[in-house]
Amino acid sequence: MKKGVFYGVGVGPGDPELMTLKAVRVLERCPVIAAPRTKSGEMLALDIASAAVDLGEKTIVPLYFSMERDKAVQHAAHLAAAEAVRAHLDEGRDVAMLNLGDVSIYATYSYLMEIFKEQGYETVMVPGVPSFCAVAARLGVSLTEMNGPLHIAPGSMVLDEVLDQPGTKVLMKSGRQMPAVLDALEERNALGKSMLVQNCGLPEETVYADLSQSRPEGKHGYFSTVIVKG
């Protein structure tokens, strides 16, 4: 029996209207949809996709991924998720794994893709709108200018290494690190050229167009993207 194809489908940052026509077609065609699920049961990527595609007749496979920094723990979670998907691929059913944003940028799909590639399965990546592109559009700013570099990094990186680079800096998934990010920007007198969008494209979206004028307080969402203009 021919084995199924493992698709990674980028569903964009939150607004279902930002899903590509190709993503919609792949989801309509695949009988099995694999979707990351949090401990609390939330399946955000599935919620986004369901607003653009009727998934009522699909088989939904929840995937649990550990947020632990221990690489062994993470790898074990990836293997368990791959095992849940493999059962369908071996039966000849194509599986589309949903991924927030794009499937090539800090994407969980990439870990499972490498596992299946090594085992001889066919894998296909369907790109999506990256969160930082949607954030820039929401803010009405350009990320780059002629000959200007663009640096993209997780907020957990050593901030000095990122913020001292020339050009525009994008700090993704900065929620937990937000206090440190704001402190680092203030030390560099860079708050006036820094912007933040939390939960871009989602109902709880919050926009800070100038962090020198207003900044977030209290808990900071995981999907917090900071743009620092060069």
Rank of each mutant, 00 (worst) to 15 (best):
V135P: 00
S104V: 11
G192L: 05
L191P: 10
P154I: 11
R86S: 14
D94C: 10
L89W: 09
D164I: 08
P130K: 03
G155K: 00
L98M: 01
G120E: 09
Y64D: 12
Y106T: 01
L139Y: 13
L191W: 13
K71L: 07
M125H: 01
P166G: 14
E186D: 14
M146P: 10
T168N: 13
D94F: 04
P179F: 09
S66D: 07
H151M: 11
L139E: 11
D94M: 05
V124W: 02
E122W: 01
S110Y: 03
L182N: 12
G155Y: 01
Q74H: 01
V85Y: 11
V181I: 04
G128F: 05
A82F: 14
Y111F: 13
A72P: 00
V170N: 09
N189A: 14
D164W: 02
D183R: 07
G148C: 13
K71I: 04
K173P: 00
C133H: 04
D90E: 15
P166N: 15
A87E: 14
G92V: 15
L182S: 12
G148Q: 14
V162L: 10
V129M: 15
A87R: 14
L159Y: 02
D70L: 01
A80K: 13
L112A: 05
A180S: 03
L139A: 08
Y106G: 01
D160S: 08
I152Y: 12
P154A: 11
G140A: 12
V129D: 02
K193F: 01
M178G: 04
G92I: 09
F116R: 06
L98K: 04
A134R: 08
R93Q: 13
G140E: 03
G192Y: 09
M178V: 05
S142A: 14
D94K: 05
G128I: 02
G92R: 02
L185E: 00
V124P: 00
R188C: 09
K71C: 09
L89V: 09
L182Y: 12
M67L: 03
G167I: 02
H151W: 15
L143C: 08
S110W: 07
Y64C: 11
L100W: 10
S66W: 00
Q74E: 06
V135Y: 03
I152S: 05
A137T: 05
G140V: 05
A81D: 09
S142H: 13
T168W: 08
L89N: 06
D102G: 10
E145W: 11
A96S: 04
A180Q: 06
A153P: 03
M172F: 06
A107L: 02
S194N: 13
K169M: 03
D183W: 01
L171M: 10
A153W: 07
D94E: 10
A87Q: 13
N189F: 02
E161H: 14
R86V: 09
S194F: 06
G192R: 15
L63K: 12
L112Q: 13
H78G: 06
M97E: 04
